[in-house]
Design a protein around this nucleic acid. Structure first.
Lengths: 265, 265
DNA sequence: GCTAAAGGCTGACGTAACGTCATACTCCAA
DNA sequence: TTGGAGTATGACGTTACGTCAGCCTTTAGC
């Protein structure tokens, strides 16, 4: 009843190398090893191999299989635990798939037209944003904004288009993070918001207060909201929460206080 | 505007080691390398890093990212292709999850009671199977079967229980394979059917013809069907098809011929 | 100007589960 | 006896870095 490696391999539908590997890691030692080093497997080893293969098909890693078969780990409990892992893994995949679809839409969507619209949108948005700013935060903020406008007026259309492309990719990453369950006030999210903050700084000398205020605009100002919505309809809220969290945690902005304090770096 | 590794790492939320790795594989070389070997990154590298990280979050492997960014591979097309892979991966996970649930049910289901039932079922099934056999294949087959019955009558209950456990695990593997899309007449399936055939041989000296006939019994004989259904309600059909395929391909059974021919091994 | 603490650099190993050589025996049949 | 088939033992390759270990700058403090 003893079988050689290749016999067992054929019987069980695995490779000889796999049997050797299972021997090496101690998962399935042969029943007998001859003086010449040849491995011989008996009935108990075949049964064990069957159990190994069943668990392997369920996706259980080899060390896990070893624990189940050797130590008294409850097979069913172990499988339940493994099931949880697979569910998490599937969630990850689903998040990726959603993010891919968004990305494809955002990047493949009629490129030329989208960029035209985006370009036009930016110019128009800026004038309306000025009014919004003046109304919400006073003429001083609006004046600062106008200064930025003048400085960036010389930007070429190409600059804008690149900005738009960069910005879109950043927003896509945010949406992907959100889908993975990343909260807007977590460290991981703040790394992304940081990019946003840096981008804003190139257009507009934001203070902690005004950047915090941008959180409102992103949700309530139609133009600002539209830009973000181009990537994902529900993203403005997440981004707004992130912007506020960033202002508080990284810029030292404090609600209900007149004076904003720079975080000591 | 030049940043050191740790600055870039902090900005982008990756590890220094990651940047070094991306340099090593040529995915993201620093803009400048000083005489002392220090890496310095400029604006273009930061932008490239952002694009890398977006694609990475979408699950695209690094070589794929390199192709997209460097060669003129269409980003959107590449993502579509990648999406297909993720979908396949998810299908695999779903198959595993289904198999796990079946396994948990089949193995955890009230062990003692189930085994009692299974044991009782086996005895009872054998007598009814004899009648079925006589009716379908004549007294000769039935007589051969009775001989097997006498030989296995001495088996202890423990033997049966172990058989039941072995058999269940084998059936579970079959159901898992089926869920992965494995056809009952493929080589992979026949490896599993082989186990079934060997198991049957221990109870009953099956000929190619009688084993082929077992295909019918598995679907139509209530007791036989019930045993397989314990694992999965739809498995009997798949197993029956596999049994017939095995009889034809591996045992040399031929439909519509009186004489069955042993396959020359 | 010196010293110590950061920060940077280059290997090199480890990870999961084997596939794929390369090299060297061993066995069996003609 | 010889050749072909089978087996054995390394060892490298795979994915995307984490984690030392050992050595070299740069920077800050005294």
């Amino acid at each position: 009843m003893e079988r050689t490696v290749s016999e067992v391999a054929k019987l069980a539908g695995v490779s000889v190398r796999t049997l050797r590997h299972y021997d090496t890691i101690g998962l399935l030692p042969p029943g007998r090893v001859a003086a010449n080093g040849y491995r011989y497997y008996g009935r108990p080893e075949l049964l064990r191999l069957q159990r190994i293969l069943l668990l392997r098909e369920l996706g259980v890693p080899l060390p896990g299989i070893a624990r189940i078969l050797d130590e008294q780990d409850d097979e069913v409990a172990a499988l339940q635990g493994h099931r949880e892992e697979l569910l998490r893994e599937r969630k990850r995949l689903d998040a990726m798939l959603g993010a891919i679809e968004r990305t494809v839409v955002a990047l493949s969507g009629d490129d030329s037209v989208a960029d035209d619209e985006f370009f036009a949108g930016l110019s128009e948005a800026r004038s309306r944003l000025r009014d919004d700013l003046a109304e919400r935060y006073g003429e001083e903020a609006a004046a600062g904004f106008e200064k930025a406008v003048r400085e960036t007026e010389a930007w070429t259309r190409e600059d804008y288009e690149r900005m738009g492309d960069e910005g879109r990719r950043l927003l896509l990453r945010m949406a992907a993070a959100r889908d993975r369950g990343v909260g807007p006030d977590t460290d991981e999210a703040l790394e992304l918001i940081e990019q946003h903050y840096q981008g804003v700084l190139e257009l507009w000398p934001a203070t902690p207060t005004s950047y915090y205020g941008l959180g409102d605009l992103l949700v309530e100002n139609a133009d600002q909201r539209a830009v973000v919505e181009m990537v994902d309809k529900d993203l403005p809220e997440w981004l707004a929460a992130g912007v506020r969290a960033y202002a508080v945690k990284r810029l030292g902005y404090r609600r209900n206080e007149e004076e904003t304090v720079r975080r000591s770096v």
